[in-house]
């Protein structure tokens, strides 16, 4: 700060001539500067984002096995084959189950942690750091701990050790999808990794709720606890909740890392949409056409879900204001 202000003061003389300056040369020319600032980004965006998107839309209409410059136009056949591919439709079911579990659980846990931390007076920063720390850990590392230490199907796994104290038999969490114990592993690992991040969002929102609201409620006789939570805190957190749920949904949609490492792409169950795309486009068949068609379908779906959710939460807001 101090250096910048002194620098400003140090050059007062040229300021006198400033009215003429912006017109002098390119330095003050807005159009030139706009492209100077945004040019590198836009060129990169065009090459590495727009080109792939349009290329893949183009590829999705061609028979593109082992080639990215196909010549055989096949119309919507790739779309048909993806939508009738039981692996692909099955992966959409996997995503739906996963989202139905992880979105509400993360929402509730991160909100719960935020409410706890918000009420702390001592060691607040410490506890916030503890809950936030898993954000630094990669999905791969966490998957490794979950798979090889906590939910190992044999006796030395932590979970089975603890259950063993209560006389429970060893559970094979990951080798058998019946009953689907693998969801316990998959959901808890993501819960641990991401709850702290969303807790920070909720904490920031909690700090922005005006204290007068609670004071007014106390005067009106509302009991602190459930009543103030239900009628003040929760409605005040509505915007944050909407954003958090949307972020969680989009993240669940793109789930890959922990499924890949915990369940592996060789399994016939628990495959997410991205894993199916990975196998289709980069597996033995290298079917870029079908893989691209799958990517287009997924993109359309996620956009639809996003818009629907915005609409749904929007309606909710309308009801509240009545």
């Amino acid at each position: 700060m101090s250096t910048t202000t002194t620098r400003g003061v140090a050059q007062p003389a040229p300021a006198k001539a400033s009215p003429a300056r912006p017109r002098r040369g390119l330095r003050g020319n807005p159009t030139f500067n706009f492209w100077l600032f945004t040019g590198p980004f836009l060129v990169g965006l065009a090459i590495f984002v727009f080109v792939p998107i349009f290329w893949s839309i183009w590829l999705s209409f061609f028979d593109a096995r082992f080639t990215v410059t196909p010549s055989k136009f096949i119309g919507f056949d790739n779309y048909k084959s993806m939508l009738t591919n039981s692996n692909f439709t099955g992966s959409l079911v996997t995503f739906t189950v996963f989202a139905a579990l992880i979105v509400p659980l993360t929402w509730a846990l991160s909100l719960g942690l935020a409410l706890l931390v918000h009420r702390l007076r001592f060691m607040r920063a410490f506890f916030r750091s503890v809950f936030f720390l898993p954000t630094a850990v990669s999905y791969v590392a966490a998957a490794l701990i979950w798979k090889m230490s906590i939910f190992t199907g044999v006796r030395f796994g932590l979970m089975n050790t603890v259950l063993g104290w209560f006389g429970v038999e060893n559970i094979a969490y990951l080798s058998d999808p019946n009953p689907p114990w693998y969801w316990l592993v998959i959901v808890t690992v993501r819960l641990w990794l991401q709850a702290g991040f969303y807790m920070i969002l909720f904490l920031a929102a909690l700090q922005n709720i005006p204290a007068e609201l609670y004071e007014a409620a106390a005067i009106d006789g509302a009991k602190p606890g459930w009543q103030t939570f239900r009628y003040i805190t929760l409605p005040q957190l509505r915007a944050t909740s909407t954003a958090v749920i949307l972020l969680l949904l989009v993240a669940a949609y793109q789930a890959f890392d922990e499924f890949f490492n915990i369940i592996s792409i060789k399994a016939t169950w628990g495959q997410t949409p991205l894993m199916v795309l990975y196998k289709t486009a980069l597996g033995d068949n290298q079917d870029y056409g079908a893989g691209s068609a799958g990517a287009v379908i997924l993109t359309v779906l996620i956009c639809a879900v996003t818009l629907l959710q915005g609409k749904f939460m929007g309606f909710g807001r309308g009801e509240d204001s009545k």
Partner: peptide, 10 residues
């Protein structure tokens, strides 16, 4: 993440 197939192609 969904665009990794086309990006890989590129």
């Amino acid at each position: 993440a969904v665009t990794f197939v086309p990006s890989f192609v590129l």
